[in-house]
Design a protein around this nucleic acid. Sequence first.
DNA 1: GCCAACGTTGGC
DNA 2: GCCAACGTTGGC
Length: 161
Amino acid sequence: MAKRKYWLMKTEPDVFSFEDLVAAPRRTTHWEGVRNYQARNLLRDELKKGDGVLIYHSNAEPSAVVGLAEVVREGYPDAAALDPKSEYFDPKAKAKGESPWCVVDVKATHRFSTPLPLAQLRELAPLKDMVLLRKGSRLSVQPVTEAEFELIGANGKPVKI
DNA sequence: GCCAACGTTGGC
DNA sequence: GCCAACGTTGGC
C-alpha cells in the first residue's frame, strides 16, 4: 500500500461542523460541494483510502483545526451537482448529464480536546510554510506534510472517538 | 461589515 | 488570448 498522505479540509461549522460529522451514521459522510478545480483534482486523484485529514472550521469563532478524520472511500462523482434541490447544484453539469465534481468519504476518528485556532497555528514555527497559513490561501482541500500533521495532531491532544 | 486575494466569466 | 468585471472565500 502506498504511503499514507495527509490533507486538510475546510468546512464552515454553520453549514457542516465536525460535530455534524461525528453525529453522522458511522461518523462518515461524503465531502460534497467542492467547486474548485484544483481541489477537485486532489479529491479525484490524490486522496487515498487511509489518508489522514485535519478538519478545519473556517468562518468560525475562532477558526480552528478541531479534529481528525480519515479517507474511507476514494474519489467518485458528486451527485449533488445534478440535484436541482441541492445548494451545490451545478446547471452546467446538469446540462452535460454528468457531474465533473468529486467527493470522497471521510470518517471522523479523533476530536481535539484542545482545538487549535489560527493564531496558535501561526505561533508554531515549523508551520510557517503551511498552505493554510499562506496569505490569500483559499483552497478547501489542501495537502499537509506528515510533519505538519503530526505536530498539529500532538498539539490538539486528540481523543479517539 | 470591510476588504484583500483569488477564480471565473464574458466581451472584444 | 487578453483582461476587466464580477462573485466568492475567509480573516479580521
